[in-house]
Design a protein around this nucleic acid. Structure first.
Lengths: 213, 213
DNA sequence: TCAAATTTAAAACGATCGTTTGGATTATCA
DNA sequence: TGATAATCCAAACGATCGTTTTAAATTTGA
């Protein structure tokens, strides 16, 4: 698994097509045509389509989790008792840092779209792969949230976070559909930044809501 | 398009399989095997797989929108100026009324899962079908929300509602995945009712949040 | 330089897919 | 009852899928 050019071209093409169409709606022939490589190249370099799917996720999740780990290290050095917004701020910062502003929106929406597919598409092998490789960092992050809100139970933290993930993932991965609906409905067009500007306070209010128990 | 038994059996099987696997991951042979009908029956009764997908949505959306229209009629008779919770209450009531409590959870999660697929799967024909058939009731509902919150712009109403839809749809349509993650993470199992009990106040706080502008 | 690794090419594989066909079977109703 | 239409069935069609194979060309690195 070496030689940057062909492998990278396949990953680029696959990433874009997966995000656009989903996994089973994207054929290897579409990928290799777009990447301008031979059909057999995918099986040669990755072994199978499933492993290609995993490689696409691995390419951005591995550096991402490394950055997140480092940022969490920094945070715990700076503040002994970080609060909710600190921890979530680290997550957002990690998503944005090192990405050139020009391609930030594109990269981010592809990231979100793929994340959504990981949850909603029937790809048990992918969830096994993600769990096997990234569960440690994920759990570390959740634990920070937990200690930032000791009044909330683990159960409440878990579900609130995933309610929020649901909003973000759904909004980003259906963004083009929703954007057109919004124009149709309200006559006003909204960019991703505009919508994020509405989404953040929305989630803030929800996440910080007092538990009724 | 007559003869209730075969058509109904196909719709039942298709609905369940679509909700479980998605559209393109479900073959007509899976559907006809589960429905115990001949393979050709789908094309005979529905014309094509696409039209079957639309028929599955139509079967529950047509009575649903009729009920919703009636409930909105009732509401405007009862209260001249319904508030946010009144309007959303009508929606929830419409989803639950007439469904036997025994199968309510099953029906509801299938409904949500299908709704999520309509947004996230690559099925342009389906979104065209939904818009052509149900846009009127949808728009009427949104208008009620608007007049219940005249302080919010159409744009803010639209996006808040869809942030909320995102949470619900994501949570319900990934419920089995999330449920297993929650057990792994927190050691606590949660039923759909449990999670709904957390999700409702979460969304309440977010939807009613004061606009910063 | 020479062997190994990579890339391309072209073809075929077995499998599965949605769809179609033509005849058998069943239901409908004058 | 007998004719007409609706339904069902087994089988096949053509297309596409992921994957594999064989062979030649090219690049790479020790």
């Amino acid at each position: 698994m070496s030689q940057p050019d062909t492998v990278t071209r396949i990953l680029d093409a696959a990433e874009e097509l997966f995000a656009e169409k989903g996994f089973s709606e994207t054929s290897l022939r579409m990928i290799t045509t777009k990447a301008k490589v031979n059909l057999a190249a995918v099986n040669y370099h990755f072994g199978s389509k499933k492993e290609l799917v995993q490689a696409v996720f691995g390419r951005f999740l591995t550096p991402f989790t490394h950055k997140l780990d480092k940022e969490l290290d920094k945070l715990s050095e700076l503040k002994a008792e970080p609060n909710f917004n600190d921890v979530l701020g680290v997550l957002v910062k990690t998503m944005l840092v090192g990405v050139e502003p020009g391609v930030r929106d594109k990269k981010l929406s592809v990231f979100m779209r793929l994340l959504g597919l990981a949850y909603t598409q029937a790809q048990a092998h992918l969830r096994r792969f993600l769990f096997a490789n990234y569960a440690v960092t994920y759990r570390r992050f959740i634990n920070y949230l937990k200690q930032a809100h000791p009044d909330l139970s683990s159960r409440e933290i878990f579900w609130r976070i995933h309610f929020a993930i649901g909003s973000v993932v759904f909004t980003m991965s259906s963004f083009e559909v929703l954007r057109n609906m919004a124009i149709e409905d309200t006559g006003v067009d909204s960019s991703i930044e505009d919508v994020m500007g509405l989404l953040m306070p929305f989630l803030s209010a929800a996440l910080e809501q007092e538990s009724p128990a």
